[in-house]
């Protein structure tokens, strides 16, 4: 049996740790642009980051499939780790994933390649989990920042996430225009997390 066990540990206290992480995710989604702190670390096989792994282990299971970007799906140990710890079906089609794990955001597919949900059921959409290298709070006048307005935001929220595709801001604006259809994005890096749900309006030029 040990030969088939994947490398990399999961949660030591799955019940408590997934609850704590879910609250961070929920809070990030409820307060777009705010930076949340993930309470602990995992040791998944590279290039899967600990943040992506923690979110996958918290949210995915037999009933919620995962799409992995090419960089992640190319590494067999990553797929085995996720299958072992979540039991989630892995899919090759970005439009089929309940969650999409993106390890290389520079080359990620456009947002409209993922499931956008239906007019009658906008909830049937993909939630993107994006591993960035930089994630930090910012002031709304920072030219590099995503500046957001909308539900969950008192006035304006701003944060920096990079790297991302050059036209990502425009993609987010088109995503907002599809509301209530559209995708929701989570950005994670070094124990930090932030979200841009489809309900957020992206301020500023492209």
């Amino acid at each position: 049996m040990t030969a088939t066990l994947p490398s990399g540990a999961g949660f030591t206290d799955a019940v408590g740790q997934t609850q704590a992480l879910f609250r961070v995710l929920m809070d990030a989604m409820a307060r777009p642009g705010s930076i949340g702190r993930m309470p602990f670390d995992l040791a998944p096989p590279a290039p899967l980051t600990p943040e992506l792994a923690a979110i996958a282990l918290t949210m995915a299971d037999q009933e919620a499939s995962l799409w992995l970007d090419p960089g992640l799906s190319a590494v067999d140990a990553v797929a085995r780790y996720l299958r072992f710890h979540t039991g989630a079906p892995l899919t090759d089609d970005p439009a089929q994933g309940a969650f999409a794990l993106i390890g290389d955001p520079r080359h990620m597919p456009p947002l409209d390649a993922f499931s956008q949900g239906l007019e009658d059921y906008p909830d049937r959409s993909t939630t993107l989990v994006i591993a960035v290298e930089e994630l930090a709070a910012a002031t709304p006048d920072n030219a590099r920042a995503f500046v957001l307005e909308g539900p969950g935001i008192a006035e304006r929220a701003a944060f920096i996430a990079s790297p991302l595709p050059d036209d990502f801001r425009a993609q987010l604006q088109r995503n907002r225009a599809r509301f209530p259809r559209g995708v929701d994005c989570l950005f994670a890096c070094a124990g930090r997390i932030a979200a841009i749900p489809r309900s957020s309006t992206i301020i500023g030029g492209v």
Binding site: T58, E63, S199
Partner: peptide, 27 residues
């Protein structure tokens, strides 16, 4: 029984619904 009664798979299912509910206010 599990912590807070529900099994973990049920909690995950509800948590996924909550994330969507928060992202689509009022839906």
């Amino acid at each position: 029984y599990n912590f807070a009664y529900l099994d973990e798979q049920t909690k995950r299912m509800i948590r996924r619904a909550i994330l969507k509910a928060v992202a689509i206010p009022g839906y």
